[in-house]
Design a protein around this nucleic acid. Structure first.
Lengths: 239, 239
DNA sequence: ATCCCACGGTAACTTAGGTTAAGCGGGAAA
DNA sequence: TTTCCCGCTTAACCTAAGTTACCGTGGGAT
C-alpha cells in the first residue's frame, strides 16, 4: 500500500531496510475518500499528515469573492501536507479531486521516525522543498507563460511525476479533473481553459476524453511548454 | 550582525542561549555585495547558504525568451536559499536588488548545528515551509488577483515582514527595486506596473519616490489587497 | 562640459483572456 | 420514463493588460 511512497523516495535516495521498516510504521490508518471532499481546511490544527496512496488531491486557496487557485496537485506517493508537520496548520485547503486512498500519518510518529533516523528528517525536508520548487515553476507559468504554454507545462509535469510512481500508460494518464478544476490550477476561466484544450488538440499535442489524457506528441508539448524537468530534482542524491 | 536573524527566529520560537551560541557559530564569513549581482545561479552546486543581514535579494527564474519572474523577495533576517541545504542546487537564480550585507553559512555547519539541536532543524524546516506558504499566496495573487490588488498585496506583505525585523519607519520602508524589477515580481509589464503605481497613488493608498515607499492608508491598501497575514505564520509556535 | 542611458512617466493602439449566454448530451434521481 | 443538473462546447462581445513608441530627467562615465 505504502510501497508507492517508498518507490518515490527510492527514485532519489538510498533507503535502508531499517529505514523502510520505520517508514512502514508511520501509518496509523488508511481511509477511502470520495471526490470533492474537503479533507483539511485552512487554519485547522493538525496532528497528522496525509500520504496519498491513490487518486488525486489538490491544495487550494480561496479569495473572499470565491475565486479559487489550486496551488498544487498531488498524485499517488505524495505527502499532501507534510509541511503541516512543522507549520501545525495550513494556509490552504486540501480537497479530493477523485476517489482517493490515503494513509494517515500522525505527527508524533513522524517525530519519532525523524528522531530515530535524522537522515530521513532531511529526506522529508527535501520533499517539502521540492514542493517549493514546484510552486516556483508554477509562479513562472502564471506570471510569464501564455495559457497554452501553461497548460502544456502542467501536463508535462504531471506526466513526469506520474511516471516516477508508475502511473502512466500508453503515453498518457488518467486525469480526473473537470475543466473547471483544471482552470483553477492555471489561473484561467473555464471558457478559456476549454479554448486552450481545443487548441492543444488542434495542434495534435494531446487528446483528452473520458478523464483520460493522452500525450500525442511529447516533444511538441514540451516545446510549447518550454518544459525543463530539472526543477523536479529527480536525479539521485545523498543527504 | 546576525542579530536580525535571531530577532526573526525569536518572533516565533523560544531560542535558548545554547541554541543562540550555536546559531552565532554557523557564519563562516560576511560579504558586501553591490546591486544587480548574480549571487547564486540556477543549477550550480552549493555548499553554503546565504543569510541576508541587510539589503534586498530576489529569487528569480527565467524563460528561454528572456521573460523573468521573481518568485520571492528577501529582506534582512531571511535565509535566501536555505532550501539549498537539502536540494544541493537551486532551480532559480539569487540576485541582489540593492547593496547587501550577507553572511555565508556553510552547509557542514548547518548540518552540525541541526545534529546538535534537532529542534533547530525543525525550526529551519519551518522557515523553508513559510517560504512555500509565501509562494502559494503569490500564486493566488498571480492567478486570481488584479494587477492593482496584487501590487497592494505585495506591499502589505513586505510591510509586515519588514516590521518583524524592525526595518519599517513612519509607516513605510525603503524599497530599492526599480519599476522593472517590481513588474517582474508581479507578472506585469513595466508600463502596466507604472499605471498600477499611479492608480495606488491616485487612491491615496501609497506614495513611492526616491526608493522610499510610504503606506498612506494601511486599511485601504489591505482592503484592495484582500490581505490576510495568517499565511506568514507569525504567531508563536512550539516545535 | 557633454554624452549617455537607465529610469520614470504617458499616449495610442492591440490582444489575450474574461464575461455572458446559450445549446447539447449523459448520468443520477424521482 | 422523465426530469434535472453538471460538464463540455461555442459564439459574441468586452476589458485588463501588453506593445510600441516617445519624452524628460538626473546621475555616471569620459
Amino acid at each position: 500500500m505504502i510501497s508507492v511512497h517508498l518507490k518515490k523516495l527510492r527514485r532519489r535516495f538510498e533507503i535502508s531496510s531499517d529505514e523502510e521498516a520505520g517508514i512502514r510504521g508511520i501509518v496509523s490508518e488508511t481511509r477511502r475518500l470520495r471526490p470533492d471532499e474537503l479533507v483539511v481546511s485552512a487554519g485547522e490544527e493538525l496532528t497528522s499528515s496525509l500520504l496519498l496512496l491513490d487518486g488525486w488531491l489538490a491544495r487550494s486557496k480561496d479569495l473572499p469573492g470565491g475565486e479559487r487557485q489550486v496551488t498544487e496537485l498531488h498524485v499517488a506517493g505524495d505527502f499532501a501536507d507534510l509541511h503541516g508537520f512543522t507549520l501545525q496548520r495550513l494556509d490552504h485547503d486540501v480537497v479530493t479531486m477523485s476517489d482517493c486512498n490515503v494513509a494517515i500519518v500522525p505527527h508524533e510518529r513522524l517525530r519519532a521516525l525523524t528522531d530515530a533516523f535524522p537522515r530521513l528528517g532531511r529526506v522529508y525536508w527535501f520533499a517539502t522543498n521540492v514542493d517549493g520548487a514546484i510552486h516556483r515553476e508554477s509562479a513562472l507559468s502564471l506570471g510569464q507563460r501564455s495559457a497554452l504554454s501553461r497548460m502544456a507545462h502542467l501536463f508535462c509535469e504531471l506526466y513526469v511525476r506520474l511516471e516516477v510512481v508508475g502511473r502512466t500508460a500508453r503515453s498518457g494518464f488518467e486525469f480526473p479533473l473537470t475543466q473547471r478544476e483544471l482552470s483553477e490550477c492555471l489561473g484561467l476561466t473555464v471558457v478559456h481553459a476549454n479554448r486552450t484544450i481545443q487548441e492543444l488538440r488542434r495542434r495534435q499535442l494531446i487528446e483528452l476524453e473520458n478523464r483520460q489524457l493522452t500525450i500525442v506528441n511529447r516533444r511538441g508539448l514540451e516545446g510549447v511548454a518550454q518544459f525543463d524537468p530539472s526543477y523536479l530534482y529527480l536525479e539521485r542524491s545523498q543527504l
